[in-house]
Design a protein around this nucleic acid. Structure first.
Length: 712
DNA sequence: GGCATGTGTATTTTT
DNA sequence: TACACATGCC
């Protein structure tokens, strides 16, 4: 860029439409931008950041909160591009959770947080709950107690919605309502456990930030640090997040939030549409700007999307329009069954590829992560590279968790969940022995006294790690050899002395090897074990190499662990080879993860009632409404071509091996009134491809099948 | 007593 | 496929 300043500003401001420009050049005070799908929301927000910088705001006094880190990175890169200033990178940008983490590392002292806290992901939280559950011998009773993952969901929802447990159970987890006493007991202990472990869970990050804003002195300091706050996807924030913002904006109310009430799809996570609706009251006097011109989709795609939304119970605040005409209506593809759908999708993808639409410009969207299972296999068979977003995370794979647990012990020796996991890796050590070892190194005593204040008080006891290394607890014979190896590896990585008397002296002079060396050393210890424990060790080994590769970008171990927890890389299918290395790949994504994205060609799978809407979400009206918005989000991701696939027949292979099947209904979100906005097609079957998966299931089909054997 | 192994059963979406 | 629970082995 040649220069900055007004001239330049004028140029890029001219590229905005009126409403966008009004939003971007808004002065001081609160602003609510209602931005429909594809109306240039990212562009507007990025331009706003650029504008503020251009007007002289120091980038590090701007906070930009987005829904994913990916979105933050994109906006910052655009702002950087517009301003031509590298300093745009200094904007405090990221998710609520990652910004909370950053702030709490700086100001945690005023909340008595331990300086070395680690962050628990959902799995850690679940494991902790499970541990407490077994200790309390809950679930031993007649009935099945809620599973650990459910416990975490209940906990998180209760906290984030800031509602009473019984209300939450009745409303969202009615099948658990009977166990309320046990659940409450677990939650109570869970809180203590987190303190003892020096760890915060996702929800704590928000709660502590909220609390921080209310601490006299520190609260004002944190708030004053930022002149402007911008928030993306405001429709998907919860009430705690709204409180955080109010806490941050007590003095100057320079805040811009962007959202679309028609796209709120995170109520299950306690997001509330009230935030957007009440914004003008909570921050007044707020200016409201509405963006209605859609630049993304063709008019027929928008017309169909609008028709779907017209069925909604609530009226939304706007109607989108587009200047992009097209002859091509969205296509509703009727398929015989899932196999047929899979083949049809592959074929269409290849057709578009041939027409010159790169795979990067094509996406397949679905309601639930496992809906793409069959497609993934077929894509692999056909050598079509893809990358899947949503669903299982890399970090959730057991072997990655093992590696991370080893690192976390080093980072935070009080992290019991990690100790518990690591010790049980050793042959002959189960929960009981693991717990005994942890006791013997002083993990289960109440160590509050040793960490009072900022945790650096005099006379601090040696950490459990130092103790484990200085004196070897007895272990079962089978585990002895591996236990020695573990201690050696931990000693090497921490720089703490082995089999010596631990003292503050040793603590002071320890030298740690670099992170990459540590990971390598840990791997050395871990790999033989993991070959014993896991069947398909070879495939999993690649993940460990991947972990090593990611770590090589980091210097700080703590930073590495935190980033991995707050922004985990999405898992890639083992089947697809190495999509990262392919320059052109197809995107598979849950609809949730597709939020904010766009592609030239979009396929929506399983547009059948029970899939979309998911029948599990249909407990109440609100659930159905959210599913509708979800479908709307899926449709509005498409720029030029939208295919909605509807398999007519579903096989029930889940619990029985028979070939029973049932007929599905077209999703209720495409009633006849909306159907006229689609072109309807029958999927071309590819029957000759794979005779085995195409077995006849009744007399009529048997005849068809026989006929196909000789009539090509 | 405690650990390893086998069997039956499932509720979607994510920071 | 993973997880919770029951049974068998050291």
């Amino acid at each position: 860029m040649l220069s900055k300043g007004f001239c330049l500003a004028a140029t890029w401001l001219n590229e905005l439409n009126d409403a966008q420009r009004r939003a971007v050049t808004h002065g001081l005070g609160p602003l609510l931008i209602i931005a429909g799908a594809g109306t240039g929301k990212t562009k507007t927000l990025a331009s706003r950041v650029a504008y503020l910088i251009d007007q002289g705001t120091s980038p590090d006094r701007i906070m930009l909160l987005t829904f994913t880190r990916r979105a933050a990175a994109e906006m910052i890169s655009r702002a950087r591009h517009i301003t031509g200033q590298e300093t745009a990178g200094k904007v405090w940008s990221g998710t609520f959770h990652s910004v909370a983490n950053r702030l709490l590392r700086l100001y945690g002292r005023s909340l008595n947080l331990p300086p070395d806290f680690t962050i628990m992901d959902e799995g850690d939280a679940a494991d902790t709950m499970n541990l407490i559950r077994t200790e309390l011998s809950l679930g031993k009773g007649k009935r099945r107690f809620p599973r650990k993952a459910t416990l975490v969901k209940i906990y998180s929802h209760t906290v984030n919605a800031q509602r009473q447990l019984d209300e939450v159970l009745d409303a969202h987890f009615p099948w658990c309502a009977e166990d309320i006493e046990g659940i409450a007991l677990i939650f109570q202990q869970y809180l203590q456990r987190k303190t003892q472990n020096h760890s915060l869970d996702y929800d704590d990050l928000l709660l502590y930030w909220k609390t921080l804003t209310a601490v006299p002195g520190a609260g004002e300091k944190v708030a004053d640090r930022f002149e402007h706050i911008l928030v993306d996807e405001y429709q998907d924030t919860n009430s705690i997040q709204a409180q955080i913002l109010r806490g941050m904006r007590k003095k100057h109310e320079n805040i811009v939030v962007v959202g679309d009430d028609a796209q709120s799809i995170y109520a299950f996570r306690a997001a509330t549409i009230r935030n957007i609706l009440d914004f003008p009251d909570q921050f007044s006097p707020a200016t409201v700007v509405t963006l209605e011109q859609n630049y993304r989709s063709t008019q027929p795609i928008l017309a169909a999307s609008n028709a779907v939304m017209e069925q909604a119970r609530e009226r939304y605040t706007k109607e989108l329009w587009s200047k992009r005409p097209s002859e091509q209506k969205p296509v509703l593809v009727h398929c015989q069954d899932e196999k047929n759908q899979t083949d049809g999708v592959c074929q269409l993808i290849l057709d578009h590829l041939e027409e010159g639409v790169d795979l990067m410009q094509q996406a397949v969207l679905f309601r639930a992560s496992h809906h793409s299972a069959e497609l993934e296999i077929e894509l692999a068979k056909r050598n079509i590279p893809f990358h899947k977003f949503g669903g299982l995370k890399f970090i959730e794979a057991a072997h990655i968790k093992d590696m991370l647990a080893l690192l976390r012990i080093l980072e935070n020796p009080y992290d019991r969940i990690s100790w518990f996991r690591v010790l049980q890796l050793l042959e002959g050590i189960g929960p009981k022995t693991a717990r005994r070892i942890m006791d013997s190194v002083g993990m289960n005593g109440d160590e509050e006294s040793s960490t009072n204040g900022n945790g650096r008080g005099g006379g601090r006891a040696a950490s459990p790690l130092a103790r484990l290394l200085s004196s070897s607890p007895t272990v079962p014979a089978a585990a002895r050899e591996q236990f020695t190896a573990l201690r050696a590896a931990l000693a090497d990585c921490s720089g703490l002395p082995l089999d010596a008397k631990a003292s503050d002296d040793d603590d002071a002079k320890r030298t740690r090897p670099a992170l990459t060396v540590q990971i390598e050393r840990i791997g050395e210890f871990y790999k033989p074990i993991f070959e014993r424990v896991y069947e398909n060790a070879a495939v999993r080994l690649r993940d460990i190499e991947q972990l090593e590769r990611i770590a090589s970008r980091y210097k700080s171990r703590g930073r590495f662990i935190t980033d991995l927890t707050l922004d985990p890389p999405t898992s890639t299918s083992d089947l697809a080879g190495k999509p990262f290395l392919e320059e052109d790949y197809l995107t598979l994504s849950t609809i949730h993860s597709a939020k904010g994205c766009e592609w030239t060609v979009v396929h929506v799978l399983h547009a059948a009632d029970g899939m979309i809407p998911s029948d599990m979400a249909l407990n109440d009206d609100a659930g159905e409404e959210e599913e509708r918005r979800l479908f709307y989000v899926a449709m509005t991701r498409a720029k030029d071509h939208l295919y909605v696939h509807f398999p007519l027949r579903y096989y029930h292979r889940r619990y029985s091996l028979g070939d029973r099947h049932s007929y599905a209904q077209l999703t209720r979100f495409i009633p006849d009134t909306a159907r006229t906005f689609f072109e309807e097609r029958i999927a071309k079957g590819d029957e000759t491809d794979d005779a085995e998966t195409d077995q006849p299931t009744d007399a009529r089909e048997l005849k068809d099948w026989l006929n196909r054997l000789w009539q090509k």
